[in-house]
Amino acid sequence: MNSYLIACYGKARFPSRSAARRRARQIRGTGGPAFTNYRCRWCRHVHLAHRPGQATHLRAGPHGPIPVQEYAA
């Protein structure tokens, strides 16, 4: 898996930080997790990311994402 696939592929792209913040507030308002936004170095658009400590899945796993509750620390 290369850096592009990890950072950009398959993620929603927003034209501005204000649009990303608006969508993050909508998700949070419906009971979803807290998000932050960042400018992608690959596509130059803005993506949403989980805030530290708020992730629901880990990326590593041979059969897809592993829910945090199943991860043995």
Rank of each mutant, 00 (worst) to 15 (best):
T56P: 00
H50D: 12
R17T: 09
H45G: 06
E70R: 15
G10D: 06
H50A: 14
G61Y: 04
A7L: 08
R41I: 06
G31Y: 02
K11I: 00
N2H: 11
G53A: 08
S16K: 09
G64E: 12
P15G: 14
H57N: 11
L48V: 05
P15M: 05
A49H: 06
G61C: 11
P15V: 09
T36L: 11
Q54F: 00
P33F: 10
P62M: 13
A19F: 07
T30I: 06
R21K: 14
A24Q: 08
F14W: 08
A72F: 02
H57Y: 13
C40D: 08
G64N: 10
P52V: 07
G29L: 02
C43G: 02
Y4P: 02
P33K: 12
T30Y: 04
V46Y: 14
A73C: 11
G32A: 03
R39N: 08
I6H: 15
N37L: 08
L5R: 13
R21Y: 04
T36V: 10
P67A: 12
A12S: 10
T56H: 07
H47N: 04
N2C: 13
R51H: 04
T36C: 10
Y9V: 10
R23M: 09
G29R: 11
G61W: 03
Y4L: 07
A72C: 11
H47A: 04
N2I: 06
L48H: 04
N2T: 12
C8W: 05
P65F: 05
Q54A: 10
A7I: 06
G61L: 12
H63D: 15
H45C: 06
P62R: 15
P62S: 15
M1G: 15
G64H: 07
P52I: 02
R13E: 14
I27C: 00
T56Q: 15
R17G: 15
L48S: 02
I27W: 02
A24G: 04
I27F: 01
A20K: 06
V46A: 04
S3M: 09
H57S: 07
A55Y: 01
R59H: 11
R51K: 15
Y38I: 00
F14V: 02
A7H: 15
R25G: 01
I6T: 11
I6G: 07
M1N: 13
R17Q: 11
A73V: 12
Q54W: 03
N37F: 06
Y38G: 03
T36K: 07
C40I: 01
A34R: 04
M1V: 13
L48F: 04
R22C: 00
H50W: 07
A34W: 03
N2K: 10
R39W: 02
F35V: 00
R25N: 09
A60W: 06
G10N: 03
G53H: 03
G53W: 03
A19N: 08
R21W: 05
Y38D: 04
P65W: 06
M1L: 13
Y4R: 12
R28Q: 08
A24E: 06
L58T: 13
W42C: 02
Y38L: 02
T36G: 14
T56M: 13
C8P: 08
R13T: 04
Y9L: 09
V46K: 01
R17K: 14
R41P: 05
P65Y: 05
T30G: 05
A72E: 11
L58R: 12
G10H: 04
F14I: 03
G53M: 09
A12Y: 08
